[in-house]
Design a protein around this nucleic acid. Sequence first.
DNA 1: GGGATGTTTCGGCCGCGGCCGAAACATTGG
DNA 2: CCAATGTTTCGGCCGCGGCCGAAACATCCC
Lengths: 243, 243
Amino acid sequence: MTAIASANAVAEIAALIGDPARANILSALMTGRALAAGELACAAGVSPQTTSGHLAKLTEARLLSVEQQGRHRYYRLASPDIARAVEALMTVAAAGVPRHRPAGPKDEALRTARSCYDHIAGRLGVALAASLCRNGRILLADGAGAITEDGWRFFAAFGIDPGADPRSRRPLCRPCLDWSERRPHLAGRLGLALLSRSLELGWVVPVSDSRALRITGAGHRGFVGRFGLSPDWPQGREGAQEF
Amino acid sequence: MTAIASANAVAEIAALIGDPARANILSALMTGRALAAGELACAAGVSPQTTSGHLAKLTEARLLSVEQQGRHRYYRLASPDIARAVEALMTVAAAGVPRHRPAGPKDEALRTARSCYDHIAGRLGVALAASLCRNGRILLADGAGAITEDGWRFFAAFGIDPGADPRSRRPLCRPCLDWSERRPHLAGRLGLALLSRSLELGWVVPVSDSRALRITGAGHRGFVGRFGLSPDWPQGREGAQEF
DNA sequence: GGGATGTTTCGGCCGCGGCCGAAACATTGG
DNA sequence: CCAATGTTTCGGCCGCGGCCGAAACATCCC
């Protein structure tokens, strides 16, 4: 019973995510960074021993991978698929709460720019994707994407080569629906490379204890100058009509 | 703490999906079609009253929408986002369990032939639909179906008249995606009539405490002789190319 | 070695929630 | 109005699983 078995498998995965403590753990790992068990216990808001049980389950189910370093054990999301699934659930959850606009400053920071697993999300991520698309650097279709000839030159000039490490089975360039903006941002190896390079250049810096990214002055100038984002960004809804 | 709030919202959604019965319901609705509560009970494998509770929860959480038609209540996925989330979970589930083919005898019986609500599903149901289609008794399109002139004569000769009781609002003939085969079988009043008549003729008998149907010797001869199923059925994948 | 720190295992408590039978409610058709 | 059918509500049972305290490991540092 293929479909039934698959539905039950879905239920298993969803049930794992469907516990507040575990959802907090996964959420904390959405940055793509690895965190130690103790940090995750803090993030989850439950005791270390309870967290240990949760981590064992998540690892057993291959949602997390773990590596030991001394007396610490560092956990991270086992694959981008996991991040994508959690993000999809966030989209649904966000849609389910249509008007809930307290929107504290922290929330606003997350909406402006954040890391999603290993790439850039939030208004910055969406604006970059839209701008790259508009300028013919990439093509984004429903669930797939590609880099144009011009795009390859552009990215090389920016100092990244998403084609490197061709052994990787990860898609080169694919859209990922942004839960706060409900429009696509860039994932895949290109998304990864863009985030790494932006961090390297100091265009964005991670906000501690958060997935939020702070855009520096240099970053603002860079995104506007090189990527063609409008100067009054991030207030405007850059390319809001693109999709 | 926005991040925690959002994680809890994710947990809520995931917990809803994380019950086998509800996952089956969502899975059954992944085609995008609306299904009645009773059909979903059949799909979920639990009683109608239990299903009712699940449907209420899913609807309350805006995962499903419902519309009433007479004494039926038709449920469908509330948005494509929901389907995307379920699909993302399926991706994770599929990746997490690369090979897992136990397929016990009970499972095999269900795959061979079972009742779905009030019509025949499983390999038998799919083979019948394919054969009827191939021989020009019926036409099946994406979400609708029809009986041909020849088909009416054929079904009358078989001893059923799906046109009787024209007041019924149920569709006469419509395809229903089979979970185990992933290809359509026959539902609607024609599907109902086919199952009733097959039971009447003793071609199939219900297996107690199961949705499985056992195909009798007479049934095997009948399905082969009258409906043109290949004699080595149900081993072969009758008309596997039809759709 | 010994003590501090990080992590897991064990054991037991407890409540949430899924399940079904019975029955009520709703709609349709006769 | 009554009977049949589809759906929901109610009530009660029961087990799964999350939680924590205590304690056992594991590792590091002195």
